[in-house]
Amino acid sequence: MTMPFDALNDVSDEALLISFGNGDREAARALTMRLTPKVLGYSARLLKDRAEAEDVAQEAMLRLWKIAPDWRQGEAQVSTWLYRVVTNLCTDRLRKKRGKGLDEIAEPEDERPSQDAVLMQRQRVDALQVALDSLPDRQREAVVLRHIEGLGNPEIAEVLDISVEAVESLTARGKRALAKALASQREILGFENDGS
């Protein structure tokens, strides 16, 4: 069965995946448009290298294509499954890097304050990324999933394969660590520790 592309917006990820499993190329297009940005965004937050993040995104999507015929309906959300795959792929890559002693935290390219709002925003985003990179893996994954990807705690628990209480603990500790890491740049970034 092939569905017209413009009629796929209201179709769930799972229905599209099953349709793809039956050979529907339009479903593949719709899923690519819908899920690749999410997957890339998440992998880019976990990895510092953009090219590497793209490789992870491609690999995660390839695994999705391969599992499509065997997908068990109702067991998990497609996006949750993908976040889990990306988490594992990124963890593997980060471990390999650490094994080679390459886990150096990148500094922002330009730390000079700028009056230009765009540059300021860019600096803030870079600074947060650096601070995120300094967190332990699990804390970083939980904070990114909760506060950047916008997932709920139960879904994060499913992605990371831990309890909801553990997720709450990780995100709370992660936020505290971030606030502490960014405190030194408070004046440059206009950042305030709101104590949350």
């Binding site: 940005p37 880019a44 985003v125 947060l128 950047i148 960014l182 970034l189």
Partner: peptide
């Protein structure tokens, strides 16, 4: 920090 998260969300590649 929450406002910073929002900025990062908007700047997602």
């Amino acid at each position: 920090l929450d406002a910073l998260f929002k900025e990062v969300r908007d700047a997602t590649p």
